[in-house]
């Protein structure tokens, strides 16, 4: 086990106030359409979301950012920040992700003095970068000397655990059902990391049409509990 793992756990904790609890990334559209309505249908949605969208965006970004930090190639990090932002066509998920990234950066800066965090902040201030949680998370994981596959795994875990929390509130599901889903999802996360480690770089940003469409439709959902 990597040393400093406990420090990274803090960023994965659902109490870590990044605002992720306000974003459903299109899940709420499916809940309102009654497509996602119970434990089984939510699990299906989560599988598609992780294996068909998240691995090609945030997941692959973790790997590429980690490599770029290793090679001290910051330009590549800033390129990925832009790519991650502009490939996110639905406005709410794009802006929501940016807000989460910004808050995660602010919190991380108050906990750690890794120089790359301040450089990222500078880029954002100059409007050269946007802020993305997968980039901030990887910067912290790298700074804490956590291995690359573990950095990816814990990033995915944190993304999934806040989605499960949101599903518990919105569908709604019982707390035990939520824990069962998280537990059942562990092998899926392992599989996602294995896939990410193998992905060709030019698979970056592949989106699944239905998921993306639901993320766009959320803008027109009238009564809502999530911002995306």
């Amino acid at each position: 086990m990597d040393k400093n793992m406990l420090s990274l756990f803090q960023l994965c904790d659902s109490n870590f106030p990044t605002g992720a609890f306000s974003h459903s990334f299109g899940l709420e559209s499916y809940i309102q359409a009654d497509v996602v309505r119970d434990q089984k249908t939510f699990f299906e949605w989560l599988q598609v979301y992780v294996h068909e969208q998240l691995i090609y965006t945030d997941g692959l970004a973790c790997r590429l950012v980690y490599d770029a930090l290793l090679q001290e190639d910051l330009q590549q990090v800033w390129n990925l920040d832009r790519l991650l932002t502009v490939q996110n066509l639905p406005r709410e998920t794009r802006e929501g992700t940016q807000m989460i990234g910004d808050r995660m950066l602010k919190l991380s800066q108050s906990l750690y003095d890794f120089p790359v965090l301040s450089l990222y902040r500078e880029q954002i201030k100059k409007k050269q970068s946007f802020a993305h949680p997968s980039i901030v998370f990887t910067m912290v994981a790298y700074g804490l000397e956590v291995s690359k596959p573990n950095a990816i795994l814990y990033y995915l875990y944190s993304a999934v655990s806040s989605l499960v929390q949101n599903a518990v509130r919105a569908i709604p599901l019982g707390q035990t059902a939520g824990q069962l889903i998280t537990h059942k999802f562990h092998p899926e996360l392992q599989r996602a990391v294995e896939k990410i480690m193998q992905l060709p770089e030019d698979d970056f940003g592949i989106v699944s049409p239905g998921l993306e469409l639901a993320q766009m439709q959320h803008e027109r959902v009238n009564i809502r509990i999530f911002m995306s």
Binding site: L83, G205, I206, V207
Partner: peptide
């Protein structure tokens, strides 16, 4: 000259 949209369907 700045990337403004990236759309990838596979």
């Amino acid at each position: 000259e700045k990337l403004a949209v990236f759309d990838h369907i596979k």
